[in-house]
């Protein structure tokens, strides 16, 4: 375990990871009960990434994420109520309920989705960074994407353009070793994703994505480079998803043993064990954290349940900006 000197901080990291874990467990339950529909991609096992990475960003930095973005929005600070309501499709959701699980948006926190076409977010992050660059703002645009996205042309085009124009983009690859059922080695000739940055003369790093403290410090270093105006940075988080790609899949592409092996490195477990060894985490402390999280989730569910649906008459509202037509 790395340095756990700042105990309060470490406990907060644990709390955030647990908050995501429990929120998503509740979501899965609600999905089985038919309250949440469509696709539901959970980040079970990958929580250390959003928890470690997002606090390294300033409040006015931008975030572009994928369909597996519940944790990112939670850590960014979008109220759990608005996220749960979005999963329900209620009008009080963070996107009025129109987006659902894959499409969280929060303009007040510069959270630009929740974009569900693989690699579709990378060029958008480049453009956000271009806007900052041209406006002489020293903001960072952070873009999360999976290992699968690395196979798309948009990944390569975005890295090249961001490097060419020295744009403040933080490319954050959540490498969980699979793109749906396709293992990394079945879709990449070079499985060391961080090395791809070399081709575009971009600095890069790879970090253990199960170790929240390592994620935190590596992301902080990367943010510093980008904010200093030295152009983009590619950071690869090596992680693993414990559950199916979306709610259900046959998981024929991996063995139970492999999943179990990775569960030994569950980020929640790793941090908890470290904190217990130092006497910081006790059953009583954990109980308190869990109870507060359970209360927050129960409140979010109550809120979502009680929230109204958007009226059907509003179906065509916001197709265009008001006043334009």
């Amino acid at each position: 375990m790395p340095n756990l000197v700042d105990h309060d901080h470490s406990l907060e990291l644990l709390r955030q990871m647990l908050r995501i874990r429990r929120f998503e467990e509740k979501s899965a339950e609600l999905y089985s009960g038919g309250k949440i529909r469509g696709f539901l991609h959970l980040a079970n096992g990958e929580e250390a990434i959003s928890v470690g990475a997002i606090p390294a960003l300033a409040p006015d930095d931008a975030i572009v994420a994928t369909y597996r973005e519940h944790g990112h929005a939670l850590v960014r600070g979008t109220p759990m109520r608005a996220l749960m309501a979005e999963l329900y499709g209620k009008s009080t959701g963070c996107a009025r309920g129109r987006g659902g699980s894959m499409h969280f948006f929060d303009a007040s926190r510069r959270f630009y989705g929740g974009l569900a076409i693989v690699a579709g977010g990378l060029p958008v992050a480049v453009g956000l960074a271009l806007a900052d660059h041209l406006s002489h703002r020293s903001r960072v645009s952070a873009c999360f994407f999976g290992d699968g996205a690395v196979a798309e042309g948009e990944f390569h085009e975005s890295l090249n353009l961001a490097a060419l124009w020295k744009l403040p983009v933080l490319f954050l690859c959540e490498n969980n070793l699979y793109a749906m059922g396709t293992a990394l080695a079945r879709h990449q000739s070079q499985i060391d994703i961080a090395r791809k940055a070399d081709a575009y003369a971009i600095p890069a790093d790879a970090v253990d994505g199960m170790d929240v403290l390592a994620v935190e410090s590596a992301t902080q270093r990367a943010v510093d480079v980008v904010r200093a105006g030295q152009g983009p940075f590619l950071l690869e988080y090596r992680t693993y998803r414990f559950r199916a790609h979306s709610m259900y899949d046959a998981e024929l592409y991996r063995t139970k043993e492999e999943v179990e092996r990775w569960k030994q490195r569950d980020p929640v477990r790793l941090l908890s064990e470290g904190l217990r060894a130092q006497g910081v985490l006790t059953d009583a402390v954990l109980d308190k954290l869990e109870t507060a999280i359970a209360d927050e989730i129960a409140d979010a569910v109550t809120f979502a349940e009680a929230s109204p649906w958007e009226p059907v008459e509003d179906l065509t509202k916001d197709v265009y900006t008001p006043g334009k037509v």
Binding site: R37, G38, G89, K90, G97, R98, G99, G100, H103, W309, E310, V312, L315, T316, V319
Partner: peptide, 16 residues
């Protein structure tokens, strides 16, 4: 279909 991006909630999707 109504000329909107297709929304997530069932009642709106049905209406679209």
């Amino acid at each position: 279909s109504v000329e909107v991006p297709i929304p997530y909630p069932k009642h709106l999707e049905d209406a679209a």
